[in-house]
Structure formats: C-alpha cells, structure tokens
Amino acid sequence: MTEEKVFKNYPHKHLLGIEGLLPDSINYLINLSKKYANYLEDNNQKLDDLKNKTCINLFFENSTRTRTSFELAGKKLGADMLNISVGTSSIKKGETLIDTAMTLNAMQPDLIVVRHNDAGAVKLLSEKVNCGVINAGDGPHEHPTQALLDSLTILRRKKTISGLKVAICGDIMHSRVARSNIHLLNTLGAEVRVIGPATLIPKEIESMGVKVFYKMKEGLKDVDVIIMLRLQLERMSGSFVPSIREYFRYYGLNNEKLKYAHSDALVLHPGPMNRGVEIDSELADDLDRSAIFEQVQMGVAVRMACLKALIKDK
C-alpha cells in the first residue's frame, strides 16, 4: 500500500493519550485508519508493512476486544505479536512495573501495547523503554485508540465531526473512554456533552470543554451521536448508583429516550455492553441506529494505523 502524503507522519514516539495531540496528528491517524479499513473491506490478505517487527501486548487488566484487536491488527500487518497477560507473568511474583518494563525493553521489541489499571502507569512504563508505547487504557485516564475508532466510526456515518453534537452518557467518572473522547471530539470541533447522575460526573469536568447534563431528556436534545458508557461495576466502591434498575430507568438508553435525540442519531458503545443496564437489548442490536459492531471492525483498522505510525524504520 502506498501512503498518501497528506500529513507527513505521526510526530510522537508514543501514543499515551489524546490530550495534547494536534488536529494534524489525529487526522493523520484517522486517515491512515480509513485506508486500512477500506483495504480490509476488500481484501483478506495480510500486508507486509510491519514484516520482521515485533510487538508486545502487555495487559495488566483483563480485556478481550482491545487485546484481540491489537493482536489481529499486528498480524494483518505482518508483525510478530506477543501476548503477555498478567496472570501467568512474573508481575504476579511481585515484580515492579519498572522492572517489567526494563526486562521487556532488553528483548528489544519494536513496540509495546500496555493496559494497566492505574492512571499514569503506561506513561511511567514508556519512560523506561526505548521503543514506542501505545496506551491501551490506563485506569480511568485515557484510552486513545478507542477514541480514534469512535471518531472513525462517526466519520463513516456522518462524514464530518466538526459541528456535530455528541453526548457521552453514563459513568463518566471511571471512564477512560470518556476522557479520550472528550479530548478528541473537542479537538476536531464537535460540541460535547456529558450526561449522567452527579455521582458519576467528576468535579470540574466543564473545564475539559463539555456541557454537563443530569437528565437524559435535556442532554440528548438534538444530539447527532450518543456514546453510551459501560457502568464500570468493578471500579466502584461505595454507592454511586443505588441499583441497576434505577440506573436503567433514568440513564439506560432505549428507543423511547432515543427519540429526544436527532432523528438519525447514531449510537455507539465501547463495549463490553451490559444489556439492560445502560443500553436496551433491542436497541443494541438495531444495526441502523447502533454502530456497536462497526466500532469493533474499525478497531482493527485504527490499531493497524497506530502500529504502523508508531513503528518507525530505524
């Protein structure tokens, strides 16, 4: 595949978050993703863009789609992908993150993809290795490839992001997807809203450039895109919401609440879904309204683009 020379390249060594990226860098990654997405739709053959390159997937947290998606993306590009999951590694034996980083670094990979349950952990690891690092989610901080694939999905359906009204609904407090999406959508010129019960909306989030709504009816008015978030039951200690049925009644998305939004509003969900908690089962399966499975498809393309952009020829 030949690259279009619209933007020269991705200028950073790592992809640790969307915050601080210039629109050019973001557009470069999205355009590259688009090309891979188009390629994947027409072809089933592997590329050799990253032949002889080694990439390590280091996942301290359980993950199905992100890890598989990175693995598949790497394989489609001809790279050698290694998976390290924490259950079987020496981290269980008490090794510190920095030691793990230095050990992996000594094996001279071309890229490391990291997910960790502590905010900032991926940044710490990136400081100790020579190769590029992609953040595949660090605690409630950032999840840049998810935001990129959400934008790519929106772009395929809506043609542009600038000027769109996007509502992010649910557990904003514990969500890295929300933070990355807020940065990305704002950078590309969308109007971003967050909707949720006040217990799940972090303090002073307005300063990140969003409007806060506590009611779905008001928040969803005229929005073009709705990003539903998973209620992160595992990150919750203490009563953020009293019960799942109360949460679903007031903040779960169903066809009725969807009527408040623009008539062709698009529904996204980063997965894994809790059907009947934040999204109605029927709606989730409605392929006209929800792009949930398209997101997964775009995930592979976006991760191909990120791997390609970050593994630079030495």
């Binding site: 905010a119 900032g120 950032e142 933070r179 303090k203």
Partner: peptide
C-alpha cells in the same frame, strides 16, 4: 479534587 484530578483520572 478538581479539574486536575478529573483530567488525570485520579480520585480526588
């Protein structure tokens, strides 16, 4: 607690 904690994804 505040903007900084929110941006960093840390509990305030």
């Amino acid at each position: 607690e505040g903007e900084f904690a929110t941006r960093m994804g840390l509990t305030g």
